[in-house]
């Protein structure tokens, strides 16, 4: 528990209030989406946007996630300019994909649903990929797949362990088979990472479904989920419609996945940097050679400069 006192999140209160439903106008309080209790917004921030009353883990933007998990100022972003080129010239019912991407980019503050780069976790270097759910439900299309393949390939080049932190609705429909093929592309990239004995640690956050769970997110060396995160292949509504069965309580939660042997552990948000850094310490033996004193020290990277 002392973990969360070490670092102070620095994003401002507007970030908190705008996303979390009804808020008292002065912005001092946020209403928990789960227990509906009012929480003092400063407390909410200090607890990494976790409700101190019911432990509900609210969704984070990619930049908030990076802020929470990586050492302050250590993140160096890669390939921010990679965006979709709309291969199908897709539109649905007059809704033009190209336009939707533009408006979504403004809304989400990210040009794609995946943010990639390198950074440090308690001093340990890692390549990271973090999804942005506000960008079309963090759906995976061509640009997402390309950025993912690149970050993994650079992890190989720079001998970095790789951490993905995901929530997603699945493959992006607007790019149809191109999106589907990103599932093949991302896993193929990971198979190279594995050949080089570099670990992939996957963190599943709420909600994570479809093409993302059915590809890179579920073939990690270690899989961690946040408490209560909904994770599955088909969405609960689809399953209910097709099977006409009522789904049991707790179906597809992180706890359900742990019970069924699909993930290694559940980690509370405040404990995640500690868990990740401990794992990075252990796996360092595999790709750095044994006993590397000083590797854990911030700024002592043995991995050379970023490209």
């Amino acid at each position: 528990m002392p973990d969360f006192f070490r670092r102070k999140p620095t994003f401002n209160r507007e970030d908190v209030s705008a996303e979390d439903g009804p808020v008292v106008p002065d912005g001092l309080w946020v209403k928990c989406q789960k227990c509906k209790d009012l929480v003092y917004s400063k407390d909410f921030e200090r607890w990494f946007r976790v409700c101190p009353k019911c432990d509900f883990h609210a969704r984070l933007s990619a930049s908030q996630r990076i802020e929470y998990v990586l050492d302050s100022g250590s993140f160096e972003e890669w390939d921010r300019g990679i965006v979709t080129s709309d291969p199908l010239e897709f539109s649905a019912n007059g809704d033009v994909y190209r336009e939707k991407v533009k408006s979504t980019t403004r809304k989400a503050g990210q040009p794609e649903a995946l943010v990639t780069g390198r950074g440090r976790i308690r001093g340990y270097d890692a390549a990271v990929a973090v999804t942005e759910f506000r960008f079309l439900g963090a759906s995976m299309g061509s640009a997402f797949g390309e950025k993912f393949a690149r970050v993994v390939e650079r992890a190989v080049d720079q001998r970095l362990p790789f951490i993905s932190i995901s929530n997603s609705g699945g493959a992006r429909m607007h790019e149809s088979t191109f999106s589907l093929m990103q599932m093949a592309k991302t896993t193929a990239a990971l198979s190279r990472l594995g050949e080089h004995k570099l670990p992939h640690i996957s963190v599943l956050t709420d909600p994570c479904y479809g093409g993302v769970t059915a590809s890179y997110a579920m073939v990690a060396d270690v899989i961690i989920a946040e408490p209560g995160a909904m994770v599955g292949f088909a969405g609960p509504r689809v399953i209910e419609q097709i099977t006409r069965q009522k789904l049991p309580d707790g179906f597809q939660t992180a706890e359900f996945l742990l019970e069924h042997g699909m993930i290694d552990m559940i980690s509370r948000r405040s404990e995640l940097p500690g868990t990740l850094s401990l794992l990075l310490l252990h796996y360092a033996d595999a790709f750095l050679g044994r006993h590397q004193p000083g590797y854990a020290m911030s700024g002592q990277s043995r991995n050379g400069e970023a490209r």
């Binding site: 994003f11 970030d15 930049s63 939707k100 439900g137 390309e146 093929m181 093409g211 059915a214």
Partner: peptide, 30 residues
């Protein structure tokens, strides 16, 4: 396989970072 462009130059400086918004997972499937 994939269709994307690299708009690095045009994007730098243009995008607001960390602006909150909302979105729904409407556009996704497996």
């Amino acid at each position: 396989i994939g269709a994307w462009v690299d708009e690095q130059e045009e994007l730098i400086g243009e995008l607001p970072v960390g602006v909150p918004g909302t979105s729904t997972p409407e556009s996704t499937s497996d």
